[in-house]
């Protein structure tokens, strides 16, 4: 029900910032997510960062599947 994609935070000033995935960049609204800094990956839904992507969890899940 909700499309969202992981994008990298390029810059952030207050609630406004820019995110990027591949060649694509656009502005993003950060009013729903605290403690984000440039370089983090966030999940973007309808122009809003709604959650950080947890790199350790991502790696862990892939490792788990590889090792089953």
């Amino acid at each position: 029900m909700c499309l969202a994609i992981p994008m990298k935070v390029i810059s952030i000033h207050g609630n406004e910032g820019t995110v990027k995935a591949g060649n694509l960049s656009r502005r993003a609204n950060f009013s729903l997510l605290k403690g984000v800094k440039p370089g983090d990956y966030v999940l973007l839904h309808a122009g809003f960062a709604i959650e950080k992507v947890d790199a350790i969890e991502a790696k862990g899940m892939l490792k788990l599947i590889r090792e089953v």
Binding site: L3, I5, A21, G22, N23
Partner: peptide, 12 residues
């Protein structure tokens, strides 16, 4: 192309 792919993911 890169860019087209991401835009497609973004906009469904």
């Amino acid at each position: 192309r890169e860019g087209v792919r991401e835009a497609c993911e973004l906009l469904g």
